[in-house]
Design a protein around this nucleic acid. Structure first.
Lengths: 342, 342
DNA sequence: TACGAACTTGTTAGACCTAACAGAAGCTCT
DNA sequence: AGAGCTTCTGTTAGGTCTAACAAGTTCGTA
């Protein structure tokens, strides 16, 4: 049906095929400006017949508009960022904006590279995870000439706008709930990632609050690599062997928490009586476990939505405020593994 | 430090700042062509000082080269596609090519839209999940003027190249293993997704092979939405209540399989003696379960790598063959939930 | 000294599209 | 009839960069 030429089609081909100027074809294809119904029909028919696909490269250069939003996140390998992404996509779906994602693997140098790469496409906005960046990255963001939204975390100085939760506060809140429930011998299990600032801040908020109550972390262990679920299991076993009198385990993410939970259930240990557990993130996965792990929802979807909405508003020029910070409040879910204080 | 002008910088700004022509600046910035060391230094210094970020839009238009690879997948919401993606990224990381991903949500119309969108950026290659597409999508792929690799599935007629496994064969292989192990009353649990062709093909291969051995699926149930782990649990419970004499459950994916496994362990049922279980995909998650679910690895990472490699080869023009199909062979992992035949 | 090669830089002409304006044709209203 | 609209289409001039070629410079050598 469609002809099999190798030369890519241009507006000119469509204009010749339909006997009007390139400009008119452009107007039809973008639904912009007045074109008579008859002409519109003819042009559309020709474009479809030829299989013409507009060249956005040229369009973007000419119009100085690239309806792309750069979304820069550390990883796709756990459920947290895909969920943020889906919040973003949903909001952008109703607009002319389109997300393009880049992954940094939690490496600042890679973030710098990805950011540079992205900015060289002159996007209409940037959504970037975290509030800690290299000085070069911050300079690029400042110079970008488009709205920038830093997400996930609000503990720090954003370049422009910011949507997230306070991880320090989240750590604090969890510590308070644990203390109120009467637990005293507390172990911490987390990832060995000095560059995961959010995990670090939660840990800081957590330990600081315990310290104020005169409690010190009784044991801690960090892992890297491998299946999080398996690691949670192994680390829990190891830690309880080492420090058998622990009465609470706080995991830096739900996945390792789930591993620990499964291990303890298997061992027939009384949860949350003899030992309490909590994770972080509120991943959907937890719904299917034999018992629901206590966790704290990080508002991931909403973060994505709000961040995207900021860009949409500012794109439309609607007196949208520059530099606003939106702090969301994570909710604590006691699940079945954390005693209630009362 | 950097000046805070709103007007975006161009080559001209750098050329004026360093006193050479735009062309020379371009050469320095792309590391192409001979430029004296002295000039190179001066230009680089100026570019850095101004904070210049090249405009790829213009570059791509002028050079007729866009080093982007469109990667089109149905979803980011389970572990399978991120793993394919990471295979792709790893291979492309060593080249000038860069992946850009689009998500279709298993919707053919959305696939068409995403594909159109992607092609309008004139990518250097397309990697697209699945081998079933609308006629319009197939036409676009044929016309794309760049290499196309369809991935995950080889049961069908690819437009160009193809890397994947045969899901029919995978279903058959699993059925054979189950029959060999002596199971006879078999239940199937899957997703309610008429558009997930790969799951459908596995199911077909599975039932057909059972039929040849004179066995019919004793019960089946399909779900949609919700936490897969929880669904697996619920469906397993419901099915065993309805059809208590089942001696095997085949799940269309590992996540619901894991849910079923946890449920059965909880009930203290003898696995794989009284009842056997198997899933599909070989997700890393399974490593952390109390028992390892039988599964079949779908070679996801390797599929991503091979697909990317094809594009790289063809991009380099290396007498790379057009239209090749690479069929990988999934391996059956008996885990702890499927008796061995011998 | 003149010639060619090697190296370095500049000039010109696009790549394909859109913004802005210009012009033609038809209409309404006084 | 002519002014003033509206509706439709075309023309021109970019947007920013790169390919291809042209031209200058330096150097070694016959």
């Amino acid at each position: 049906m469609t002809n099999r030429t190798r030369r890519p089609l241009t507006l000119r081909d469509v204009s010749e095929a339909s006997g009007v100027s390139e400009m008119t074809v452009s107007r039809v294809l973008r639904n912009k400006g007045d074109v008579s119904e008859a002409t519109r029909q003819r042009v559309q028919e020709a474009a479809k017949r030829l299989g013409y696909v507009p060249n956005k490269i040229a369009g973007a250069l000419a119009s100085q508009r690239v309806n792309l939003v750069a979304v820069i996140i550390p990883s796709l390998g756990n459920m947290v960022f895909p969920e943020v992404l889906s919040g973003i996509s949903d909001v952008l779906a109703g607009t002319s904006l389109q997300p393009v994602v880049g992954v940094t693997d939690y490496l600042p140098e890679k973030e710098e590279k990805v950011l540079f790469e992205m900015l060289s496409w002159r996007p209409s906005g940037v959504i970037i995870a975290g509030i800690e960046h290299t000085e070069a990255s911050r300079a690029m963001l400042r110079q970008a000439g488009c709205p920038v939204v830093e997400i996930m975390d609000v503990d720090g100085e954003p370049v422009d706008s910011c949507v997230g939760i306070s991880h320090r506060r989240a750590g604090r809140k969890m510590a308070e709930a644990i203390i109120d429930a009467g637990y005293r011998r507390i172990g911490f299990l987390g990832t060995k990632m000095p560059l995961d600032h959010r995990a670090r801040k939660r840990f800081e908020g957590f330990t600081r609050t315990l310290a104020k109550a005169g409690i010190e972390i009784a044991d801690q262990e960090f892992y890297s690599g491998g299946s999080a679920l398996a690691k949670g299991r192994e680390m829990t076993e190891a830690m309880l062997k080492r420090t058998p009198d622990l009465d609470f385990l706080y995991y830096s993410n739900d996945m390792i928490g789930a591993g620990g939970l499964l291990y303890l259930i298997e061992k027939g240990i009384d949860i949350p009586g003899k030992i309490g557990l909590a994770g972080f993130n509120g991943v959907e996965l937890l719904d299917g476990l034999p018992r629901r792990l206590a966790t704290m929802d990080a508002c991931r979807r909403e973060i994505g939505e709000r961040a995207a909405q900021i860009l949409v508003d500012r794109h439309q020029g609607a007196g949208a405020t520059e530099g606003q910070t939106i702090e969301l409040t994570p909710t604590l879910d006691y699940g079945d593994t954390l005693r209630r204080s009362s």
